[in-house]
Amino acid sequence: MKSRSAYLYLLPVLIGFTVFTLGPVMASLYLSLTHYEIAAAPVFVGLLNYKQLLNEQLFWQVVGNTFYYAFLYVPLSVGVSLALALLLEKKIRGITFFRTVYFLPVVTSMVAAAIIWTWIYNGDIGLLNYLLSLFGINGPKWLQNPHWALPAIALMSVWKNAGYNMMIFLAGLANIPTDYHEAARLDGASSFARFREITLPLISPVLFFVLVVTTIGAFQVFEQTYVMTNGGPGTSTLTLSYYIWQTAFSFFNLGSASALGYLFFIIVLVMTAIQFQVRKRWVYQS
Protein backbone atom coordinates (compact mmCIF):
# COMPACT_ATOMS: atom_id res chain seq x y z
CA MET A 1 0.00 0.00 0.00
CA LYS A 2 1.67 3.19 -1.15
CA SER A 3 0.96 6.25 0.89
CA ARG A 4 1.41 9.79 -0.15
CA SER A 5 1.28 11.13 3.39
CA ALA A 6 4.73 9.61 3.90
CA TYR A 7 6.19 12.65 2.14
CA LEU A 8 4.56 14.89 4.73
CA TYR A 9 6.44 13.08 7.47
CA LEU A 10 9.62 13.35 5.47
CA LEU A 11 9.11 17.00 4.58
CA PRO A 12 11.25 18.67 7.29
CA VAL A 13 14.19 16.34 6.71
CA LEU A 14 13.91 16.64 2.93
CA ILE A 15 13.83 20.44 3.09
CA GLY A 16 16.85 20.39 5.37
CA PHE A 17 18.65 17.96 3.07
CA THR A 18 17.96 20.11 -0.01
CA VAL A 19 18.74 23.49 1.57
CA PHE A 20 21.67 22.58 3.79
CA THR A 21 23.34 19.67 2.00
CA LEU A 22 22.41 19.04 -1.63
CA GLY A 23 22.18 22.73 -2.57
CA PRO A 24 25.45 23.67 -0.85
CA VAL A 25 27.31 20.68 -2.35
CA MET A 26 26.39 21.90 -5.83
CA ALA A 27 26.86 25.57 -5.02
CA SER A 28 30.32 24.94 -3.72
CA LEU A 29 31.22 23.03 -6.88
CA TYR A 30 30.27 26.15 -8.84
CA LEU A 31 32.08 28.46 -6.40
CA SER A 32 35.22 26.36 -6.77
CA LEU A 33 35.25 27.43 -10.43
CA THR A 34 35.08 31.13 -9.60
CA HIS A 35 37.18 33.89 -8.21
CA TYR A 36 35.16 35.01 -5.24
CA GLU A 37 36.03 37.37 -2.43
CA ILE A 38 33.16 37.90 -0.09
CA ALA A 39 32.49 41.56 -1.03
CA ALA A 40 32.15 41.25 -4.83
CA ALA A 41 30.12 38.78 -6.89
CA PRO A 42 31.84 35.53 -7.98
CA VAL A 43 33.58 35.62 -11.39
CA PHE A 44 33.84 32.38 -13.38
CA VAL A 45 37.47 31.34 -13.91
CA GLY A 46 37.20 27.67 -14.86
CA LEU A 47 39.73 25.33 -13.31
CA LEU A 48 42.12 28.11 -12.32
CA ASN A 49 41.72 27.60 -8.55
CA TYR A 50 42.50 23.90 -8.88
CA LYS A 51 45.53 24.58 -11.08
CA GLN A 52 46.89 27.14 -8.66
CA LEU A 53 46.38 24.88 -5.66
CA LEU A 54 48.00 21.86 -7.27
CA ASN A 55 51.03 24.00 -8.18
CA GLU A 56 51.29 25.43 -4.71
CA GLN A 57 53.93 23.93 -2.45
CA LEU A 58 51.91 24.79 0.67
CA PHE A 59 48.96 22.75 -0.58
CA TRP A 60 51.07 19.60 -0.83
CA GLN A 61 52.57 20.25 2.57
CA VAL A 62 49.09 20.58 4.04
CA VAL A 63 48.02 17.32 2.36
CA GLY A 64 51.18 15.71 3.72
CA ASN A 65 50.43 16.97 7.23
CA THR A 66 46.88 15.63 7.01
CA PHE A 67 48.06 12.17 5.93
CA TYR A 68 50.80 12.20 8.54
CA TYR A 69 48.24 13.00 11.22
CA ALA A 70 45.93 10.20 10.02
CA PHE A 71 48.90 7.83 9.89
CA LEU A 72 49.76 8.66 13.52
CA TYR A 73 46.22 8.83 14.82
CA VAL A 74 44.22 6.03 13.16
CA PRO A 75 46.28 2.93 14.10
CA LEU A 76 46.96 4.16 17.63
CA SER A 77 43.37 5.18 18.23
CA VAL A 78 41.86 1.97 16.87
CA GLY A 79 44.44 -0.15 18.69
CA VAL A 80 43.87 1.54 22.04
CA SER A 81 40.08 1.33 21.64
CA LEU A 82 40.23 -2.38 20.85
CA ALA A 83 42.56 -3.00 23.80
CA LEU A 84 40.21 -1.14 26.15
CA ALA A 85 37.26 -3.15 24.87
CA LEU A 86 39.11 -6.47 25.29
CA LEU A 87 40.03 -5.52 28.86
CA LEU A 88 36.40 -4.77 29.67
CA GLU A 89 34.85 -7.62 27.72
CA LYS A 90 34.57 -10.05 30.62
CA LYS A 91 32.09 -9.48 33.40
CA ILE A 92 34.38 -8.23 36.14
CA ARG A 93 33.87 -6.23 39.29
CA GLY A 94 33.87 -2.49 38.70
CA ILE A 95 33.25 -2.79 34.97
CA THR A 96 30.71 0.06 34.97
CA PHE A 97 33.16 2.34 36.73
CA PHE A 98 35.96 1.70 34.24
CA ARG A 99 33.67 1.93 31.23
CA THR A 100 32.29 5.26 32.47
CA VAL A 101 35.75 6.65 33.18
CA TYR A 102 37.13 5.65 29.76
CA PHE A 103 34.16 7.31 28.10
CA LEU A 104 34.42 10.62 30.03
CA PRO A 105 36.78 12.32 27.52
CA VAL A 106 34.33 11.52 24.70
CA VAL A 107 31.63 13.49 26.49
CA THR A 108 33.93 16.45 27.07
CA SER A 109 34.06 19.12 24.38
CA MET A 110 37.13 19.14 22.16
CA VAL A 111 37.72 22.79 23.11
CA ALA A 112 37.88 21.96 26.80
CA ALA A 113 40.09 18.92 26.16
CA ALA A 114 42.40 20.96 23.93
CA ILE A 115 42.77 23.69 26.56
CA ILE A 116 43.52 21.18 29.33
CA TRP A 117 46.12 19.45 27.16
CA THR A 118 47.74 22.73 26.07
CA TRP A 119 48.42 23.26 29.76
CA ILE A 120 49.67 19.69 30.24
CA TYR A 121 51.96 20.07 27.19
CA ASN A 122 53.43 23.35 28.44
CA GLY A 123 57.17 23.08 27.79
CA ASP A 124 58.44 24.75 30.96
CA ILE A 125 56.01 23.98 33.74
CA GLY A 126 53.66 21.43 32.16
CA LEU A 127 52.61 18.23 33.88
CA LEU A 128 53.86 15.94 31.11
CA ASN A 129 57.40 17.26 31.15
CA TYR A 130 57.41 17.06 34.95
CA LEU A 131 56.39 13.39 34.81
CA LEU A 132 59.03 12.75 32.14
CA SER A 133 61.67 14.49 34.28
CA LEU A 134 61.02 11.90 37.00
CA PHE A 135 62.47 9.39 34.54
CA GLY A 136 65.33 11.69 33.65
CA ILE A 137 63.81 12.65 30.32
CA ASN A 138 64.02 16.25 29.21
CA GLY A 139 60.75 16.71 27.32
CA PRO A 140 60.48 19.07 24.32
CA LYS A 141 58.23 22.14 24.15
CA TRP A 142 55.56 19.96 22.62
CA LEU A 143 53.29 22.43 20.87
CA GLN A 144 56.03 24.92 19.99
CA ASN A 145 58.19 22.28 18.35
CA PRO A 146 57.49 21.61 14.66
CA HIS A 147 58.45 17.92 15.03
CA TRP A 148 56.39 17.24 18.11
CA ALA A 149 53.31 19.44 17.68
CA LEU A 150 51.38 17.14 15.34
CA PRO A 151 52.18 13.92 17.25
CA ALA A 152 51.18 15.72 20.46
CA ILE A 153 47.83 16.65 18.92
CA ALA A 154 47.35 13.07 17.70
CA LEU A 155 48.09 11.67 21.16
CA MET A 156 45.67 14.07 22.80
CA SER A 157 43.01 13.09 20.26
CA VAL A 158 43.52 9.41 21.06
CA TRP A 159 42.87 10.20 24.72
CA LYS A 160 39.79 12.21 23.77
CA ASN A 161 38.18 9.70 21.37
CA ALA A 162 39.30 6.19 22.37
CA GLY A 163 36.22 5.62 24.53
CA TYR A 164 33.86 6.03 21.59
CA ASN A 165 35.30 3.20 19.49
CA MET A 166 35.73 1.16 22.66
CA MET A 167 31.93 1.15 23.01
CA ILE A 168 31.49 0.06 19.40
CA PHE A 169 34.01 -2.76 19.90
CA LEU A 170 32.28 -3.81 23.12
CA ALA A 171 29.03 -4.12 21.18
CA GLY A 172 30.81 -6.20 18.54
CA LEU A 173 32.43 -8.46 21.14
CA ALA A 174 29.09 -8.98 22.87
CA ASN A 175 27.74 -10.49 19.65
CA ILE A 176 30.33 -13.31 19.60
CA PRO A 177 28.66 -16.51 20.91
CA THR A 178 30.45 -17.64 24.09
CA ASP A 179 30.41 -21.32 23.12
CA TYR A 180 33.00 -20.64 20.39
CA HIS A 181 35.48 -19.62 23.07
CA GLU A 182 34.40 -22.46 25.37
CA ALA A 183 34.96 -25.04 22.65
CA ALA A 184 38.37 -23.63 21.75
CA ARG A 185 39.37 -23.53 25.42
CA LEU A 186 38.45 -27.20 25.83
CA ASP A 187 40.61 -27.93 22.82
CA GLY A 188 43.47 -26.30 24.68
CA ALA A 189 43.77 -23.11 22.61
CA SER A 190 45.76 -20.37 24.33
CA SER A 191 44.07 -17.01 24.88
CA PHE A 192 46.20 -15.44 22.18
CA ALA A 193 45.26 -18.19 19.73
CA ARG A 194 41.59 -17.73 20.61
CA PHE A 195 41.93 -13.98 20.02
CA ARG A 196 43.56 -14.51 16.64
CA GLU A 197 41.39 -17.35 15.42
CA ILE A 198 37.99 -16.47 16.88
CA THR A 199 37.70 -12.91 18.16
CA LEU A 200 39.57 -11.14 15.40
CA PRO A 201 37.77 -12.72 12.41
CA LEU A 202 34.37 -12.33 14.07
CA ILE A 203 34.80 -8.65 14.87
CA SER A 204 36.55 -7.86 11.59
CA PRO A 205 33.37 -6.30 10.12
CA VAL A 206 33.17 -4.00 13.15
CA LEU A 207 36.89 -3.31 12.92
CA PHE A 208 36.40 -2.36 9.29
CA PHE A 209 33.56 0.03 10.11
CA VAL A 210 35.62 1.63 12.90
CA LEU A 211 38.63 2.02 10.60
CA VAL A 212 36.61 3.75 7.89
CA VAL A 213 34.85 6.14 10.26
CA THR A 214 38.02 6.91 12.24
CA THR A 215 39.95 7.65 9.05
CA ILE A 216 37.29 10.06 7.81
CA GLY A 217 37.30 11.70 11.25
CA ALA A 218 41.10 11.99 11.25
CA PHE A 219 41.08 13.80 7.91
CA GLN A 220 38.68 16.34 9.36
CA VAL A 221 40.83 17.27 12.38
CA PHE A 222 40.03 20.92 13.06
CA GLU A 223 39.14 22.02 16.59
CA GLN A 224 42.40 20.73 18.09
CA THR A 225 44.54 22.85 15.76
CA TYR A 226 42.12 25.77 16.05
CA VAL A 227 42.59 25.88 19.81
CA MET A 228 46.10 24.50 20.34
CA THR A 229 48.33 25.68 17.52
CA ASN A 230 46.49 27.66 14.81
CA GLY A 231 48.36 25.50 12.32
CA GLY A 232 51.77 26.35 13.73
CA PRO A 233 54.58 26.44 14.57
CA GLY A 234 55.22 27.50 10.99
CA THR A 235 52.89 25.29 9.00
CA SER A 236 53.71 22.09 10.87
CA THR A 237 50.16 21.44 12.10
CA LEU A 238 48.30 23.04 9.21
CA THR A 239 45.86 20.34 8.08
CA LEU A 240 43.38 20.43 5.21
CA SER A 241 40.28 21.38 7.10
CA TYR A 242 42.04 24.15 9.01
CA TYR A 243 43.60 25.40 5.77
CA ILE A 244 40.15 25.53 4.15
CA TRP A 245 38.92 27.53 7.12
CA GLN A 246 41.86 29.92 6.89
CA THR A 247 41.51 30.41 3.15
CA ALA A 248 37.81 31.14 3.51
CA PHE A 249 37.54 33.16 6.68
CA SER A 250 40.98 34.68 7.25
CA PHE A 251 42.01 35.33 3.64
CA PHE A 252 38.41 35.61 2.31
CA ASN A 253 39.32 33.68 -0.79
CA LEU A 254 36.06 31.74 -1.04
CA GLY A 255 36.60 30.39 -4.55
CA SER A 256 39.90 28.83 -3.67
CA ALA A 257 38.51 27.56 -0.35
CA SER A 258 35.66 25.82 -2.22
CA ALA A 259 38.15 24.18 -4.56
CA LEU A 260 40.11 23.03 -1.52
CA GLY A 261 36.88 21.67 -0.08
CA TYR A 262 36.31 19.61 -3.21
CA LEU A 263 39.86 18.31 -3.32
CA PHE A 264 39.43 17.37 0.32
CA PHE A 265 36.17 15.58 -0.49
CA ILE A 266 37.84 13.65 -3.31
CA ILE A 267 40.70 12.57 -1.05
CA VAL A 268 38.24 11.31 1.58
CA LEU A 269 36.23 9.44 -1.07
CA VAL A 270 39.32 7.83 -2.58
CA MET A 271 40.61 6.75 0.83
CA THR A 272 37.24 5.22 1.68
CA ALA A 273 37.01 3.50 -1.70
CA ILE A 274 40.48 1.99 -1.19
CA GLN A 275 39.45 0.69 2.22
CA PHE A 276 36.36 -0.92 0.69
CA GLN A 277 38.54 -2.50 -2.01
CA VAL A 278 40.96 -4.00 0.49
CA ARG A 279 38.03 -5.11 2.63
CA LYS A 280 37.54 -8.45 0.85
CA ARG A 281 41.09 -9.50 1.70
CA TRP A 282 40.74 -9.37 5.46
CA VAL A 283 37.16 -8.95 6.56
CA TYR A 284 35.54 -12.24 7.50
CA GLN A 285 32.16 -13.05 5.98
CA SER A 286 30.05 -15.76 7.52
Binding site: F20, T21, P24, Q220, G261, Y262
Partner: peptide, 21 residues
Protein backbone atom coordinates in the same frame (compact mmCIF):
# COMPACT_ATOMS: atom_id res chain seq x y z
CA UNK B 1 20.41 5.86 0.81
CA UNK B 2 20.74 9.49 -0.19
CA UNK B 3 20.25 10.51 3.44
CA UNK B 4 22.82 7.97 4.57
CA UNK B 5 25.27 9.23 1.97
CA UNK B 6 25.15 12.72 3.50
CA UNK B 7 26.95 11.32 6.52
CA UNK B 8 29.97 10.93 4.22
CA UNK B 9 30.10 14.59 3.17
CA UNK B 10 32.53 16.60 5.27
CA UNK B 11 31.13 19.90 6.55
CA UNK B 12 34.10 21.71 5.01
CA UNK B 13 32.53 21.06 1.60
CA UNK B 14 29.18 22.69 2.38
CA UNK B 15 30.43 25.24 4.90
CA UNK B 16 30.79 28.24 2.58
CA UNK B 17 27.38 28.00 0.83
CA UNK B 18 25.72 27.32 4.21
CA UNK B 19 27.39 30.46 5.53
CA UNK B 20 26.03 32.41 2.54
CA UNK B 21 22.53 31.03 3.12
Amino acid sequence: SLLLATMMIPFQVTMIPVYMI
